[in-house]
Design a protein around this nucleic acid. Sequence first.
DNA 1: CTCTATTGTTGGAGCGCTCTAAGGCTGTAG
DNA 2: CTACAGCCTTAGAGCGCTCCAACAATAGAG
Lengths: 331, 331
Amino acid sequence: MARPTMEDVAARAGVSRALVSLVMRGSPKVSDQRRAAVLKAAEELGYSPHAMARSLASRTSHVLGVMVSDLHNAFFAEVVDGLDAVAAEHGFELILNTGGRSPARERRALRSLLSFRPAGLVLLSPVVPTADIGRAAEQTSVVLVARSSRLATVDTVNDDGERGIALAVDHLVSLGHRRIAHLDGGEGSQAAPRRRGYLTAMASHGLTPRVVASEYTDAGGARAVRGLLGDLPTAIVSCNDFNAVGAISALEEAGFRVPRDVSVVGYDNTSLAALRHVSLTTIDQPRNEFGRLAATALLQRVRGERVEPVRHLLHPSLIVRSTTAPPVRPA
Amino acid sequence: MARPTMEDVAARAGVSRALVSLVMRGSPKVSDQRRAAVLKAAEELGYSPHAMARSLASRTSHVLGVMVSDLHNAFFAEVVDGLDAVAAEHGFELILNTGGRSPARERRALRSLLSFRPAGLVLLSPVVPTADIGRAAEQTSVVLVARSSRLATVDTVNDDGERGIALAVDHLVSLGHRRIAHLDGGEGSQAAPRRRGYLTAMASHGLTPRVVASEYTDAGGARAVRGLLGDLPTAIVSCNDFNAVGAISALEEAGFRVPRDVSVVGYDNTSLAALRHVSLTTIDQPRNEFGRLAATALLQRVRGERVEPVRHLLHPSLIVRSTTAPPVRPA
DNA sequence: CTCTATTGTTGGAGCGCTCTAAGGCTGTAG
DNA sequence: CTACAGCCTTAGAGCGCTCCAACAATAGAG
């Protein structure tokens, strides 16, 4: 498995190593004749440039470091998908890590990524303290996804959770609902803005809010609904799709029909929501776009096109499916 | 962002560059005193070794290349999760690519990964011709996941789809079903062994098989069931979970109840199947284990512990939930 | 036919590290 | 007091590449 080097190609093509380098980098200052000879020799030897040696010599990196807090979650997979698309488009490679939602493991993952001297770093919903992020940002460009920060040195990409929930509430209100409860995500990552958005939206319609403690799982949604059965609202805004699906199950088990008796809105527009069996009205977060924007932000910095930090706050959108309808019970 | 080098650390600690190198590699032949001095200097400078320079000089790589045909699919994300766990455990880093299910793009992705001279390559369900894989295997160790191959130079990790479907059929037969249909995955990746497994299992029970053309989507499952309504079997074995969920929707829309009127079994045990709202009886594929085994296979080769190819054929397992029950209609 | 551009090509230094072989120290035996 | 093990430590070459300065070679101008 000893692979050929530039030297080998040069020897075979009867030119110098430097000329091979020029050809490999696609320089225009090489005669067509020599170029062809070099390319032929490279082909015959099965030569391909050594990315690490190249990066070392040129003091530039075509690598983007990505730390995912938890790949298990399909949300992140889609973001990575977007990152990869943009990176590939510009000849960059992704080097990937997971932090396992533990600050210690994330710190280690961070160090490991930095040891590759990446052109930039994408942190997906990291849980490490801001100080660690700041320190990383001294070494390379950093963009934070699904986590906000006031650090002047890092870019951020988030969705506007307040607005997203407001979309859901407005939708329900326009259908005629007035008793709308929110199943809250607790300590979950974007739970706070969503809760805030709910309270603000309800207030703006002059309605009485009702926040019910819950969590980002279907079991959590079911549990929360069971606590609500004595005094059921006509509509529920869940903190995410899983929670919403759990809520629907519990409602149906209790003999209620969705959306006839209770309307339910989710959040995230996971593939789950799109299933005909579920057909959940929900709020879409442009996850792929998160990745694309994050990669783009990094590439801009790499090219020196921008210095000031950028804060992307993406607009979520309402996807109306079959779990919302006008209320039939007295509002 | 000009980061300190070994030279800087050596100067500050008052030792030679080589000594710093020894300390960084954790060599035992360094006096405690010097080691402490070096570590202190490194700490003060915020030094961390340059992974690429290290790899170039040592002619060894601590990088594993991963080509995912489509990260969008949660299946692959879980495999990557398993890969990452084992890689991290052994101080390896993952470098990741997607091939977008196109041979041309995959070939490019492959080349790009190889340019990093990775210690090994993991190909998740690649669509490139075997010849390309063989060529890659000449450059580094290769393990194929979710794609079989007779190449003597590559390791493979797959699940035993025939056996998985047999598990489903046996389960239904033991419940008393005799009219069991299979919704087929067509050209889909593991559809062939699953179909084969169905036919064999039915034959072994002396039952008449009934293969219905379908595909790996919930819409596909629904469509197939609609074609079945005139002569409904008592049980359905779907090619995967999505298909099964679609089938259930169509059955319910037609006024049938699952599992009372028809039992349904999925395949894959996606997170979808586990939802209480779905609670699908299905066949579990140990995806995380796929990743772990793939990484382990590579590491064994890297360490020279093994030369002959290994073929992992993982046993799928039956997960009984709420969509299967004894038939009530005449069998 | 010489002189200056212009274009194409080359050697050499160096990127940050590892690794080998050789060197400096200490302590103990002869 | 010299010799010889250790045990630490170091200089130096080299990994595969890029990049710069220098240099041929060809072309156009005077």
